[in-house]
Design a protein around this nucleic acid. Structure first.
Lengths: 159, 159
DNA sequence: AACTTAAATAGGAATTGTTCTTGATAAGGG
DNA sequence: CCCTTATCAAGAACAATTCCTATTTAAGTT
């Protein structure tokens, strides 16, 4: 019984794709596995080079197609940031993204419990909201630490 | 005395640009005026066609250059949304954007008083945030109303 | 006013990321 | 096994933006 309940909510990616009348092909699985493996928000080209290890003669266009079907089926989210290339994210929880300006790393920031974006921005009542995309930019802890070490070194030298 | 206080905080765009060691040229002024006139978040191409009315042989590259200098000087904000072309916004207040999926209209949503994005998303303490960009998608009131009228018409017909 | 120097511009070429097209391949259902 | 449709690889096409270069313009100096 517990299983039946689980099965309803926890579809395998195969089931989800089949539910959309499509097939789980080798290429699609490989692309999905790369995303699930590295949760680094890779670009299409990064997925492409990674996935070539598994499917040596997959084409970039196919990677784009796979990423599109996966997003259409709701298995993957597409993340855009300023003018850069799109990135892909298999985290289906509601979350924002943080982009480090110095190292380029992207990380997920979860939504706080019982909070909604509308609590912070004035959204008129008669507007229907279907999606939101939230991006923060700044400096990640690693880069901040590096910078501090450098300036310490400078101070020692100048003595 | 009041004037001196004002002058400190309320620079003219010319002063701001001069403060960056640059000049307020005819092209830059025309681009800035278009943005201040239509507050529709136009794309570079839309600015280009509009600005040609004032400066008939300005080039698209120059419009891009002007938009870049204006944003570098902090007079204009650049707004990106999914894979679409960048849009430009002279509203310097902290605000989010709403994109209507059916008519494409873009509107500003002000930040609520004494609220911060960090109130809604969990941002680790040791991350430094310099910018945030927030986009909502959905249906604007006008489009919702149109849709309702249409479905009413359908209902009448089917009787 | 002429001279000097650096900034700004127009026009077009080049680049980047993505989508489209086409013919070949493969897979599931009858 | 055949038929139909989905999928794929490869490369062409495309859209938005940036880069390049020769020319023009403006500001500050004599």
């Amino acid at each position: 019984m517990a299983m039946a309940t689980l099965a309803q909510h926890q579809h395998s990616p195969d089931d989800t794709i089949h539910g959309h009348g499509l097939r789980m092909t080798g290429q699609r699985r490989a692309v999905y596995d790369v995303l699930m493996g590295e949760r680094n928000h890779p670009t299409a080209v990064e997925v492409f080079t990674k996935v070539r290890g598994q499917v040596p003669n997959i084409s970039l266009a196919t990677v784009y197609n796979c990423l599109e079907t996966l997003t259409d089926c709701g298995l993957v989210k597409i993340v855009t940031h300023e003018r850069g290339p799109s990135r892909y994210c298999p985290n289906l929880e509601d979350h924002a993204h943080f982009f480090c300006d110095s190292c380029g790393e992207v990380s997920d920031l979860p939504l706080r419990a019982r909070k909604r974006p509308q609590d912070v921005w004035e959204v008129p009542e008669n507007i229907t909201i279907s999606h939101h995309q939230v991006a923060f930019r700044g400096e990640c802890p690693k880069c901040a630490k590096k910078k501090n070490l450098k300036s310490e070194a400078r101070n020692l030298k100048s003595k």
